[in-house]
Design a protein around this nucleic acid. Structure first.
Lengths: 194, 194
DNA sequence: GCAAATTTTTTAAATGACCATTTAAAAATT
DNA sequence: AATTTTTAAATGGTCATTTAAAAAATTTGC
């Protein structure tokens, strides 16, 4: 009984179309018609499946969060030491799938609009809290108490900043390079701890 | 002959109103009527003085850039060593005047919308290039060639990230604390260079 | 000084677009 | 035949900008 398979397909298609359309036009400016066109559907069908523009946006942000979570868990699975697990979190943020112009751009859009949309803000905070928790846990074994929070905040802000800058660039990004640099930065900070 | 003094006053008032209104409502969503109400004027008068919403936004962003530039030059004036000048750039970014919820929030708004508005993008890039140049110049005397760019990028991204996070928070910010932490982060990175 | 004349500033109301959402009916699927 | 999916068209609302006229300020001629 493949119950309403089509529903899932449309959800997927429309969310992907939303990601592309928001990237192209900006969160607050993109129209239902543009998103629909991107998916080869009609604006009315979006409301049929999602109920409203706002709910579509929320579902899209959820998708993004899921992608990030997956990327993190994937890498976490094989990491053995605290240092490796720390790097797993970093690598996830700059994985080939996530560190693209489109993804950075749309993250930035949701980020910027979170303060003005309850539902986005909630999701955003949950996500940030998760990354914070991971960092804290791994840093516990790596740096002394008194410096840990400074270092964690610094690392988290650094990663946010990299994404933010990536969202501004139209030249294609280099995830491998970004991972390398992020690891260097992290090690640089850790080293000065000895 | 104080030529058309009133024009300057209105410009000032309307730009301030724009800052407040964009902070409250978001860049792409705020209306001319809301901005006008904030200034105790009519929407039509904004067009009389600025020509269009877009030009008003551009003028507002210019104002923000001027504020940052001023903050930097002020601190630069008294800094003697490269290290002091580096800290001057950092302190400027987290000065009492600039590191407020309202300022961070509106910076974030312009930032996020720069990719979709030619004029904003231009200004944004000019500003970033200036900060980059300052950092490069001061770091030249402080760290070895091979690490300089990594360190500079890390510092710049870190500062962007702090602003970005500040824009999400509704609790009042603590500029002094932010300066202290930023200095710590910078020194941490510099120390590991020896 | 001072009152018409001129210029600058201000706004209420009109204009013309644009858009999310609903509706009602058609098309496709079960 | 019943249900699900799709969309064209209608609806109702919002908003930037323009217009036309009023109000304030400034200049000018005396």
């Amino acid at each position: 009984m493949g119950r309403t398979r089509i529903r899932d397909i449309r959800h997927e298609e429309l969310i992907n179309a939303t990601i592309t359309a928001v990237h192209k036009r900006g969160y607050a400016v993109v129209t239902m018609a543009e998103i629909a066109a991107e998916a080869g559907a009609s604006a009315a069908s979006i409301n049929y499946y999602f109920g409203s523009k706002e709910k579509l946006m929320e579902a899209t942000m959820r998708r993004l969060l899921t992608l990030l979570k997956q990327a993190m868990l994937e890498r976490y699975a094989t990491a053995k030491t605290p240092h490796e697990r720390l790097m797993a979190v970093i690598d996830a943020n700059f994985s080939d799938r996530l560190f693209t112009n489109e993804q950075c751009s749309i993250w930035m859009q949701f980020w910027a609009n979170a303060p003005y949309a309850e539902s986005l803000q909630r999701l955003h905070r949950i996500n940030r809290a998760r990354v914070t928790a991971h960092f804290r846990a791994e840093l516990r074994a790596l740096v002394s108490d008194d410096r840990r929070e400074t270092l964690r905040e610094a690392l988290q802000c650094y990663m946010d900043g990299v994404w933010l800058e990536a969202a501004q660039s139209d030249a294609p990004l280099n995830p491998a390079q970004a991972r390398k640099e992020a690891r260097e930065v992290a090690d640089l900070m850790l080293k000065s701890e000895s």
